[in-house]
Design a protein around this nucleic acid. Structure first.
Length: 315
RNA sequence: CGCGGAGUAGAGCAGUGGUAGCUCAUCAGGCCCAUAACCUGGAGGUCGCAGCGUUCAAAUCCUGCCUCCGCAA
């Protein structure tokens, strides 16, 4: 079998958000022959609803590669046949890729998934690894098949989750890991050196998309579980509680993992040594937060401008 | 014209017509075995920008603009 250099292959990249744009940039900078980029349509962003280019589009334009943004790839993928790619790479594209696309490229379709499969199949693996207080996660290079995130695994790379990681920092780590995984393994894949491993069905877990109502912290959970949610939703979109009827987003917190219990949600400390509220089991020390209409600030600043909170309750 | 909140000292806030204040941080000094404690003193603001708007008098009222934030999409 003749050896093929991956850099000669016609590659189509499918992906949308920031993390995906990082991988795309790595492809360009390492002289891969990316012939087209497929991304979600541009969406109105922010209060003013200004249409903003998706991150992968920005990178693609920087390198002069055409961008396709079908509203429904399920029905609209004829253009891919004309492009005639040898290989399709996807990372957080945002739509289910139809079978018709999977059969187009000679070397198949590979997906980067932000977890160590078979754990955390689905939409928000990075957030959920934090929400569930995992200590290790990673990125998996896998074959795309009809069923979502269910294909053979060719390679993966571990990422250690540290105590002070949140979604933003973990996304960054996964992005770096996925770039390394790409450079380390893609040639082996093309050479047929990676046999691929089927996912063990008994170990499969799923993570759904995070719904807006889940951004409200559930006070029935333990301090540790709440801490997971705070980290998993920080910095965007932010987990929140209500205090005096106002929404308070909590961006950064510390876990006080003792067995204390008391009135759930009650503020048990509010001075310069800490801003702590009680949960069902254990307590949470808030470090950075934001009140409706105000900017994000550290707890000392917040308490400075909001006094007499001791004994009040989060809801 | 989607709805709403906010811009005052480095930070967080109060002040709705009459001398710009409070808390924290900071600086100097003091006390103490010691301190994230306490006491004394100091520095630091053309009150988001503009209208040379209204007024004897504007942070405060009026008009326009800019920026930030919550919601909705």
């Amino acid at each position: 079998m003749m050896k093929i250099d991956t850099k000669e292959l016609r590659i189509v990249f499918m992906g949308t958000p920031e993390i995906s744009a990082g991988l795309l940039r790595t492809l360009f900078e390492n002289k891969f022959n990316v012939v087209a980029v497929v991304a979600q349509p541009d969406k109105p962003v922010g209060r003013k609803g200004i249409l903003q280019k998706v991150p992968t589009k920005v990178v693609a334009e920087e390198f002069g590669v055409p961008v396709y943004q079908p509203i429904k790839i399920r029905k609209d993928y004829e253009f891919l046949k004309e492009i005639n790619p040898d290989l399709i790479l996807t990372f957080a594209y945002g739509q289910i890729v139809p079978e018709g696309v999977l059969n187009i490229p000679k070397y198949g379709c590979l997906n980067f998934h932000g977890s160590l499969l078979p754990k955390y199949r689905g939409a928000a693996p990075i957030q959920f690894s934090l929400i569930n207080n995992e200590s290790v996660t990673g990125v998996t290079l896998m074959e795309m098949i009809k069923e979502m995130d269910a294909g053979k695994m060719f390679a993966s790379k571990e990422v250690i989750i540290e105590e002070n990681d949140n979604a933003t920092s973990l996304f960054k780590k996964i992005e770096v890991a996925s770039c390394e995984l790409l450079l380390d393994k893609i040639q082996d894949y093309v050479d047929g050196k990676l046999p691929g491993e089927e996912q063990d069905p008994s170990k499969v877990t799923f993570c759904p998309m995070i719904k807006p109502e889940e951004e409200k912290i559930n006070l029935d959970l333990s301090a540790k579980e709440i801490w997971g949610w705070i980290r998993g939703l920080s910095d965007e979109p932010g987990a929140f509680l209500y205090l005096n009827g106002l929404k308070i987003k909590i961006f950064k917190a510390k876990l006080i993992d003792d067995n204390s219990s008391g009135n759930i949600g009650e503020i048990i400390k509010a001075d310069k040594t800490g801003f702590v509220f009680q949960t069902k089991c254990g307590a949470i020390s808030i470090l950075e937060l934001q009140k409706e209409g105000k900017g994000r600030m550290d707890y000392k600043s917040f308490l400075n401008g909001n006094q007499g909170l001791l004994g009040k309750k989060f809801e």
